[in-house]
Design a protein around this nucleic acid. Sequence first.
DNA 1: CAGTAAACTTGATACGCATCAATTCCAGAG
DNA 2: CTCTGGAATTGATGCGTATCAAGTTTACTG
Lengths: 251, 251
Amino acid sequence: MSGVESDVIAVNNGPKCRHSPSTSCGDCRLSGICLPIALQHDEVARLEDIVNRSKTIQKGYTIYRQDQEFSAVYAVRVGCVKTMRTTQDGKEQVTGFYFPGEIFGMDGISKNRHTNSAVALESGAFCEIPFDRLQELSSKLPSLQRHFFQLMSSEIAFDQQLITQLSKNSAEERMAALFLSISSRFAARNQSGLRFRLPMSRGDISNYLGLTVETVSRILTRMQQAEIINIDNKEVEILDIEKLRMSAAVL
Amino acid sequence: MSGVESDVIAVNNGPKCRHSPSTSCGDCRLSGICLPIALQHDEVARLEDIVNRSKTIQKGYTIYRQDQEFSAVYAVRVGCVKTMRTTQDGKEQVTGFYFPGEIFGMDGISKNRHTNSAVALESGAFCEIPFDRLQELSSKLPSLQRHFFQLMSSEIAFDQQLITQLSKNSAEERMAALFLSISSRFAARNQSGLRFRLPMSRGDISNYLGLTVETVSRILTRMQQAEIINIDNKEVEILDIEKLRMSAAVL
DNA sequence: CAGTAAACTTGATACGCATCAATTCCAGAG
DNA sequence: CTCTGGAATTGATGCGTATCAAGTTTACTG
């Protein structure tokens, strides 16, 4: 409960505190991650009009479900979200982890139906951005249109990096790369990139990395023995980020 | 040379036949795949204005290179294109195969720099769509904007399917799934989905599927012995598509 | 604060695919 | 048509990670 995660503020206990944690998009401390574009004041105001800010959610709850009709994309405000898909033969694949300021749910646009489910890994809050209204507004604000093209493109690039890892890297390399990714994302929000709490379980990590929980567990102990990290349950400290970079060996 | 691939028409021998294979977007027999949207006649005309149609290319040549500045997205007209990325430590990953009517190059939008290289697997032709002009036009034609959002979203969904396969499926399941994907894409162009020529090498296939050439080769012989397919070098005949579907076991 | 189920760790064993090595096949060049 | 180098196949062996099986710790729940 100490330090890092103290900004998990709201749980889903009805409308009474629904507006308290919500600032405007313009004031939001995450806007540098979520909206790193030059919009005029009145343009931000028009965006704010359509964004449903700070809906709260409890740990383990689902934001949308695979095959459900697509109507909006989402931004994490507080907490962490995982996306996952189930294949016809019942296998589950975790396809992504999303941290505050990051956008998720864009997979659903093509078929107008979500191809993933999204689940909160921690109690937290998120923004909902109705997609039809976002499209209208994008037509009028070229920089917003460009921003969403870029967002989707970086999702593609990110997925292709994961593909490369699953295809070419060892278990240890994948784990190291995930730590580096999480670390830099904490750092981007002005939090410590060297000491943080993992919001996801070993099962989620192993699933995401195409491994088993046992393998992940073994690798974590090995990394600890090699004095690359210190890990106590979900509390991670990166002791030697250079060694970690060596272990990752990726683009 | 018989049958299936007879529509490889043009090679890169200068400007003299540069316009012969190019029809307008409105008349293009691939428009059902490339542009499955309702545009008015005058809207199609405006799109045609910006599309650089039917540039020709020879087998093995590069359309764009990783890290090169991004300026356009592309559509395959004739032939087949692979995209691939090289990691910092020199590993290569084939990230996609693109068939006539399919769009590639959208990974470059986010950083304004390509994260992949694109190489022609066969001599063929492609269209170039300058992205800045596409953005302008998208602002004016909402259905075109929506179309590109959808295209990028389906690229995301497709990549996530590959992630799932690399992470959860056996070598044989991955190979079967690739055959089914290629088969359905041939069928979408009114070509035989049961008998076709693979445009890519075993090396490309194995790299894409996260396997070695030896493993791919062994699996192909096994599938042949099981009378699921007939394969003679690159010529493939699917004998039992139901068994193939059983082998694939995916979404 | 106890009771319990889930999450995590650790160890022993098994297996799928990689690796190494040797042919064979095929396409392109002359 | 023959020559030649790359592509593909086939076989023998080894390694990395999965699987199976306990045990331990953590975190809910009442």
